[in-house]
Amino acid sequence: MEKVVDPKIYFRTAIALLLLLAATWMIAYINLGLFNLIAALAIAITKAIVIALFFMHIKGSSRLLHLAAIAGVMWLLILISLTLSDFLTRGWTQ
């Protein structure tokens, strides 16, 4: 038999995720200006991290897997930020 995770952890993870979903849904109905977007993204990132850590067992995995999990996101940030360095400096944003 392999060592397995305590079921409680999975249940807690799921409850946390559902609560985060409720939070993001509710915040959308309050006008917070730019903060709406920031809150939505922050919650989405938190959900992603929670899923990766507990459902995908990144917690307790080797550093190599941590690196592999982060690499894709890092490269996506390179793609987005350098492309925006063009679009945000063109002078035709509203």
Binding site: T24, W25, A28, Y29, I30, N36, L37, L41, A44
Partner: peptide, 12 residues
Amino acid sequence: CFLFPLLYLVGH
């Protein structure tokens, strides 16, 4: 988890 807020909850 990203598509839902980005597409459905873009602003308030």
